[in-house]
């Protein structure tokens, strides 16, 4: 999956602009695809590798911001650079808030655009890598039983077995068994490793019980 090549997509309703930009990106060594409208891009099959979209704000049909929202909802990992002929601060702000990489005013310096694309692709790559890690971590965690998962949530906030047993109203020994099985299943040996993995997987730790003295792991 991660082996897929990088792609630069250009979405602009103006044919000259599309041709010019495609030529520019190809000359810079990127694979480039052009789309006459947002709808055209959405119709394309999902690209798995790092992808940077260069979007015109004003377009017939779905405009740049609309496409950004649509992609967000689809959960894609497209990194977006907006290009516009119109210095429109509210639009730019909105675009950046929604996670755009850059907002360039036409006509822009080509090197600047290439630089922005490079950054965007790096960000895309990073994004993809993180996503892959998260998927892996989640895959591991999914193997745990619900009881083991509960124990895990207390472990990562630094509770001792005794405290966890009190919380779960069970024997300290039982907790110890569960904890050993969690480490085994996840292939880990230390609590710090466990904490990092749960962070990658995006698991929220359990709330610290009132009056419990928490011993954070080193």
């Amino acid at each position: 999956m991660s082996a897929a090549a990088e792609l630069v997509g250009v979405v602009d309703d103006d044919q000259s602009v599309r041709r010019g930009l495609r030529r520019l990106f190809r000359s810079a060594g990127y694979a480039a695809e052009t789309f006459a409208s947002a709808e055209d891009y959405l119709a394309r099959e999902l690209f798995e590798g790092p992808i940077c979209l260069v979007l015109d704000v004003r377009m017939p049909g779905l405009n740049g911001l609309g496409l950004q929202k649509e992609l967000e909802a689809r959960g894609g990992c497209e990194q977006i650079i907006f290009i516009t002929g119109h210095k429109d601060v509210p639009t730019a702000t909105q675009a950046m808030k929604n996670g755009a990489v850059d907002f360039l005013l036409k006509p822009f310096d080509s090197d600047e655009l290439i630089e922005a694309v490079k950054n965007a692709l790096l960000r895309g790559k990073e994004h993809l890598r993180k996503r892959a890690e998260r998927r892996r971590a989640r895959g591991l965690i999914d193997k745990l039983t619900p009881r083991e998962f509960e124990v895990l949530r207390f472990v990562i906030i630094g509770l001792l077995n005794k405290q966890i047993a009190a919380e779960l109203q069970t024997a300290e020994k039982t907790v110890k068994v569960h904890r050993g099985r969690v480490m085994q299943k996840l292939g880990l040996t230390s609590v710090p490793d466990l904490v990092r993995l749960t962070q990658i997987a995006g698991i929220s730790p359990a709330d610290a019980p009132h009056g419990t003295k928490v011993h954070y792991p080193v």
Partner: peptide, 27 residues
């Protein structure tokens, strides 16, 4: 605004093409 946009389209295309050409020559 409308006209600026209108004018920016060909200018953008020209700038992009010129940059592409320069890069091609460099390669």
């Amino acid at each position: 605004a409308s006209l600026a946009h209108e004018l920016n389209q060909p200018l953008t295309a020209i700038a992009s093409n010129a940059a592409a050409g320069r890069r091609m020559l460099a390669q």
